[in-house]
Structure formats: structure tokens, C-alpha cells
Design a protein around this nucleic acid. Structure first.
Lengths: 111, 111
DNA sequence: TTATTTAATCGTAATATTGCGATTAAATGG
DNA sequence: CCATTTAATCGCAATATTACGATTAAATAA
């Protein structure tokens, strides 16, 4: 045991959970915000900015890459990453699809 | 090592990451969708519906409770859970705040 | 009172994640 | 060619998560 039982859930549920999981670490949130902020999408700075080891940053970048949230282009000896705009938009839509399923009911609140 | 270095990040980054993490499991996505679908917020059904053990469901419910995403009221011998509408709304806003930071740039796409 | 039902919690095993030093690979600069 | 720079990957240790059987606690039904 210990492994997620993905077979019990729909593809959509697993996909959304995987996306949420990839946002579920402050370093990855910070990386994405940094990429949004800096127009040049330079990543060498991330190690400096975030204070995590180079190997750790690289690992987080891979997690985001595997979800197709970011991609990188080689620029000389370094690599420039940035957010995949189409994916970003689709993530936003998927999350809002979940959020908007809930009919903010004023009348019958149990919380 | 192995523990997230939360001290390197802002409160907002850690909070958003924690929220994302709590959505980062298909069972918890399924639980939330079930709560949205069923008007009565009955939870005993969840064990039946999802096919996970009772202890496991209870653990996922606790994770959502700890983030204040859901809360439960005792109804006789069983417990009725539902989504916290205010929190739900604030989560939606927090995520969209992140999503909308990105200026969907058509001109300079590296992906 | 004593069963029964329901869900939380405990304890534990399996697996995943996080973090980093060390190494590797690839490109640049001399 | 060789040194340097940059980032990916490897290997490992520490920690977290997932899952579930067993137990517990609380409410109901008899």
C-alpha cells in the first residue's frame, strides 16, 4: 500500500489531481511566479532567488515539465524556461470547471 | 531532508501550495465532486461510491477538513459533510489570482 | 442495559516526495 | 585541444503520503 489507487477514478479526476499536485509545492509556485514576473524566463536565476540547491530546482522544473506546464529552450550554455500559455489556460479552465460546479448555496449551508 | 523547506517561501506561496496539495489526490477530487452533486452532503455513501476503505476515506476527509474546505455535522449516528462555500470561493479566487498573473503573450512564446 | 451502526483514530506497511552532494553531459571560451 | 559554465541526472537519506485492518468512541435501537 501507499500508492494512489488511480484505477478507482476517472481520467479527468486523475488528471486534475496530477495538475493540482504539481502546484502543491511552494517552490513550484514560486518558480511559476518567477517565470511570470521575469519576461526573459531565465532559469539560472531560480537557484539564486529561491535558495534551494541546483539539483532540487532542477527536480521541480522536471515535475512542471512532465505536466507540460513549462518548457525550456537552450540558450547557449544555459536554459531559458517559460510557461506554456495554452496549457496554462487549459489548467485555469479545468480548475474553474471544478470550482463552478458548486452552486454557492446561501440557503442551505452546513458550514 | 525530505521535508518541504517552507521557510524559504512566503505565507501566500505556502498557503496556495497547501490548498493545491489538498486537491492533489483523485479521491479528494471525487469526494468534493460527490459533495457538490449530492445535495444532502451525506458521507457514509462515499465509502460505497469510491471503493476505498473507510479508514482511507476518513483520512482524506480529515485532510479537507484541516484546510477548512469541508466541514461535517453529526446527523444521528452518521455524519453529513459539505463544502464550505466561503472557503470554496476564496480558493477559486486564490487560484485565479495565480492564473491571471500570466499575460497570455501571443508574441513571445517559447513553448 | 446491551447490541448495532457509524466514523474517527491508531498502528503499520508500502510508496512517493523532497532535498542535496556528486557526477555527468553539453555548450562555450580560451 | 582543455578548462569553464550550466543544468540534468544519479544515488541516497529524511520525511510525507497513501492505504487499510483493528480498535475506539459516540449515538441509536432493541
Amino acid at each position: 500500500m501507499g500508492a494512489t489507487k488511480k484505477n478507482l477514478f476517472t481520467q479527468a479526476q486523475n488528471d486534475l489531481a496530477d495538475l493540482a499536485k504539481s502546484l502543491g509545492h511552494p517552490a513550484r509556485i514560486a518558480i511559476l511566479q518567477e517565470m511570470i514576473k521575469s519576461k526573459e524566463c531565465i532559469t539560472g536565476n531560480l537557484v539564486q532567488e529561491l535558495g534551494l540547491a541546483q539539483a532540487t530546482i532542477s527536480q521541480h522544473l522536471r515535475a512542471l515539465k512532465e505536466q507540460d506546464i513549462i518548457c525550456g529552450t537552450i540558450e547557449g550554455v544555459s536554459v531559458s524556461y517559460c510557461i506554456n500559455p495554452e496549457k496554462w489556460n487549459s489548467i485555469k479552465n479545468l480548475f474553474n470547471q471544478l470550482f463552478d460546479q458548486h452552486p454557492i448555496c446561501q440557503d442551505r449551508d452546513c458550514c
